[in-house]
């Protein structure tokens, strides 16, 4: 299974460059990435930020159903990745979440599963690749999607193709039909919630490209559980030694 899946993905990853050191930045496409960053910023300024601001003025929690619906529709895809990573616990939790929220939670608009402690085991194919030992690859900024890496960009493509939602016969039609618009809505709501923090990075920093890159890489490595050991001297660098 593992080999088969690796075989399927290998062609996509053929372009990946060598693994960077875990704390470093590998950005051979910086020139191109910076152009995409400028494009993304102008799209944010024109579309996403104004929509996010509007969403942020909605009554507290009133847009949560959109986020819930989108998360729920993404669960079957997450289960596939849980399984590909050998994470049976996560697969079980996410399956149960999907069943409970799609039925009791009215097509996923509500989150009764979360209320009883069934929290989503978030994952994606980028993480599956990391679990399989595929190196991170070079940093990439993708149009519309923003910061990524070669590995995570390949993961996005595979997630899109692999998503079993539309092939699940018993799933109510609306869950399939509104998955995409809900996903877009979720982005808007989240942009609204991130408001000032995001504005600080994009519009108040001296080099928003470098900041976004640093934040994405560090946070992604953290999410993927690549937490350094307590003896890692590269990660736990010492600013006191440097100053002497």
């Amino acid at each position: 299974m593992r080999r088969l899946a690796q075989l399927l993905v290998l062609p996509i990853l053929a372009g990946c460059t060598a693994a960077p050191p875990p704390t470093g930045i590998n950005d051979p496409y910086e020139g191109f990435n910076r152009q995409v960053h400028a494009l993304n910023k102008s799209m944010d300024r024109a579309v996403l930020r104004p929509l996010g601001r509007a969403a942020a003025t909605a009554p507290e929690g009133s847009l949560q159903p959109v986020v819930n619906f989108s998360n729920n529709a993404g669960l079957p895809g997450a289960v596939v990745n849980n399984l590909l990573q050998g994470d049976l616990g996560g697969a079980g939790t996410n399956t149960l979440r999907f069943v409970v929220n799609t039925t009791v939670g009215v097509l996923g608009l509500l989150d009764p599963a979360g209320a009883i402690g069934l929290k989503e085991a978030e994952t994606d194919f980028g993480e599956t690749l990391a679990v399989w030992g595929v190196p991170e690859g070079a940093y990439l900024e993708l149009p519309a999607f923003g910061p990524s890496t070669e590995r995570d960009a390949a993961g996005r493509v595979v997630d899109f193709v692999l998503d079993p939602l539309d092939r699940l016969g018993d799933v109510p039609g609306p869950v399939q039909d509104y998955a995409f618009p809900a996903k877009v809505g979720e982005q808007v709501v989240e942009r609204g919630q991130l408001g000032d923090v995001m504005d600080d990075v994009l519009y108040n920093s001296a080099d928003s490209y470098a900041q976004a890159r640093l934040i994405y890489l560090q946070n992604r490595r953290y999410e993927l559980g690549q937490t350094p050991s307590a003896t890692d001297e590269d990660y736990y660098f010492n600013p006191y030694e440097e100053s002497q």
Binding site: A206, D207, I215, N219, R220, R221, Y222
Partner: peptide
Amino acid sequence: FFNIIIEGVNMLLSERTEVQAMLDQ
């Protein structure tokens, strides 16, 4: 304290990146 790390994101590295960019400008 000399550093804050929020979900993996490190203040010292962020500020060094920021200050270098400000100096370049």
